[in-house]
Design a protein around this nucleic acid. Structure first.
Length: 564
RNA sequence: GGGCCAAUAGCUCAGCUGGAUAGAGCACCGCCCUUCUAAGGCGGUGGUCGAGGGUUCGAAUCCUUCUUGGCCCGCCA
């Protein structure tokens, strides 16, 4: 509809250009916006304000001229000039109610588009190392990342969800040492406990499992505890498999799935790290100093150069990271979204620097700003008005599993995704578990369940209705009904905007508003009434509302229950 | 010292990429249950949009300088 109005305005401007009111070289910036206030009609445009100067007249006069030149449209009932020179468009009744039919016809595809044109996009998220249970921060990453996948998929992208993890290296060594210490009956309080060892109780559970000879199904192999406290390699393999399985179970319980699990070790075993190092050296952006190999990241906006190869011969973490991203590009992902915690922010410059150094010297032509990053700020968990501290290294932190068990999957996902990722998030456990009007999750789900309930009552009373039957939508002329339909009509553009900006919280906000519109409507207009025509029109509108609530909740990975 | 993010009602936050009188929810005050689910609805109180300067028809939104808070600045990942 916005495009339709823009077309009308464009035609009017053509007319005004032809008759000399507008200079031919005037820059057209036609914007059609949703109005906030229904007194301003359904859509408004500010064209007159932007063109008044070029036309050497005042905005209101130009508005009048544009209105006079607008071609007639059956979709537009009337136009008005208001304020400093806005043109307000009032939709014809048929055009406003048509959204109901569009929604019911499109079903669970309403709001979706093919804007992505089936291009390949990879979303990498969570990517936690297998050194402990997932914590709330990972939960935010999981909720946001999964929702971004759903949004991109809904807007026509070919999405690959990927989880990258380090299954070797220093931290895994530390995990093996910590587990070994537990196998030998030591605890963090003992003098011989490994320095910086993982202190959490989960290490003890893991050690007990190893010493009990448990078997773990890992990606492509089975790992069995050898019960040998001196076999460090066996302990390491077992510990990684054990914690990976636990993380998988947490993610599964959270409703989050991945298409690809990518092991950092594979970058070494398949020679990609060595190849990348050679490419970086060949690029001319490296130099040796103090016995180490450096990359001139300052050439790419970093504040200092970074070590690639340490004096002990090992590589720093960002070298495999660069190799990994070159691998992503070579797999055909012209768009990559990396969702991660804001504390990893400093890696962005380094990864892009390494990617660009290789790209420019080999002619790969990778765009400068590739890959995209979505960084989420920290999560603070509150219970009873007090902060619950998160401290991974100390081993005492709120795990994702704790949250899911305490407040449920749906509320956890909703709260972790409902805020802009650029803002720090306060997760209020008391609010999340409250089954009351305070809680937006229940508010939205309840709106969905209410529609289901009403539709269920129809059959009980012997009234026939189905969503494909012909109804007279012109009967829906109350303010509440108009507001509801207007809200429903904006859903596709909300989805599009949320997808483009990787901002799932926009969906959450939309759903609260939509649920509010529906509850308000429900309360002011009775649906189960004797008048069959009006009843069917209202039920059909409610069914459309239910569909959009369900579609929106699905984009957040939150369930839409039929009963509550 | 440098970088990233934030600052909007007492609290938690939106604000559709620069539009009309800045919006929700909670809290507080007053209403509405013999009714399709009160897990709900209606109304009211409450704002110098952190501060100053700039850009223009128009700024919470863009630029700039500050202030405050969080995170990062390792030959850890």
């Amino acid at each position: 509809m916005k495009q339709h109005i823009a077309d009308l305005i464009n035609a009017a401007l053509d007319t005004l250009t032809d008759n000399g009111t507008l200079p031919a070289d005037a820059q057209r910036r036609i914007m059609v916006e949703n109005t906030r206030d229904k007194a301003h009609g359904d859509f408004a445009s500010n064209v007159a304000m932007t063109l008044a100067k070029a036309a050497k007249t005042n905005p209101r006069q130009l508005s009048q001229a544009i209105c006079d030149a607008l071609p007639a449209s059956e979709n537009i009932a009337k136009t008005e000039i208001a304020g400093p020179g806005f043109i307000n468009f009032f939709l014809a009744s048929d055009a406003a109610t048509a959204v109901v039919g569009r929604i019911l016809k499109a079903g669970n595809k309403y709001g979706h588009s093919d804007a992505g044109a089936n291009r390949k996009v990879q979303v990498e998220f969570v990517s936690a190392n297998p050194t402990g249970p997932l914590h709330v921060g990972h939960g935010r990453g999981a909720a946001v990342g999964d929702s971004i996948c759903r949004l991109l998929s809904a807007t026509g992208w070919d999405v690959t969800a990927e989880f990258y993890y380090n299954d070797a290296g220093a931290q895994i060594n530390n995990l093996a040492l910590s587990t070994q210490a537990r196998c030998k009956g030591l605890g963090p309080e003992d003098a011989s406990w490994p320095e910086d060892g993982y202190r959490g109780d989960y290490i003890k559970e893991l050690a007990d499992s190893y010493m009990a000879g448990d078997s773990i199904e890992a990606e492509d192999k089975q790992v069995t505890g050898l019960k040998d406290a001196d076999n460090q390699n066996a302990i390491r393999d077992f510990a990684v498999a054990y914690l990976r399985r636990e993380q998988d179970q947490d993610l599964k319980a959270f409703g989050v799935n991945f298409d690809v699990y990518f092991l950092e070790s594979s970058l070494y075993s398949e020679g990609m790290v060595e190849q990348t190092v050679q490419q970086l050296i060949d690029s001319g952006y490296t130099y040796e100093q103090d016995g180490a190999l450096w990359l001139k990241t300052t050439e790419f906006g970093d504040d200092k150069d970074r070590v690639m190869r340490k004096t002990d011969g090992g590589y720093t973490y960002f070298v495999p990271d660069v190799a990994y991203h070159l691998n992503k590009w070579n797999r055909g992902f012209e768009r990559v979204v990396n969702e991660q915690g804001a504390d990893h922010h400093s890696t962005i410059t380094r990864v892009r620097a390494g990617v660009q150094a290789v790209s420019q010297s080999t002619g790969m032509a990778i765009p400068e700003k590739w890959p995209d990053y979505v960084l989420h700020q920290m999560v603070m968990v509150m219970r009873g008005g007090e902060e619950v501290k998160i401290s991974k290294r100390a081993g005492s932190y709120v795990t994702l599993q704790d949250l899911i068990e305490e407040v449920g999957r749906d509320a956890t996902r909703y709260f972790l995704v409902a805020r802009a990722t650029t803002s720090q998030l306060t997760f209020d456990i008391d609010l999340a578990i409250s089954q009351s009007n305070d809680n937006p999750v229940y508010y939205i789900q309840y709106a969905h369940a209410r529609v289901c309930s009403v539709i269920g009552k129809l059959a009980e009373r012997g009234w026939e209705w189905n969503q494909n039957m012909a109804v007279d939508l012109a009967l829906l002329d109350t303010d509440a009904e108009k507001a509801l339909m207007k809200r429903l009509a904006t859903f596709p553009e909300v989805v599009q905007r949320a997808a483009e900006n990787c901002e799932p919280h926009q969906i959450a906000n939309y759903l609260v508003d939509l649920a509010g519109d529906f509850h308000s409507y429900y309360n002011s207009n009775k649906m189960l009434i004797e008048d069959a025509e009006l009843r069917n029109a209202r039920i059909t509108l409610s069914a459309a509302c239910r569909q959009v609530l369900a579609n929106g909740l699905d984009l957040l990975g939150v369930r839409a229950p039929e009963h509550m």
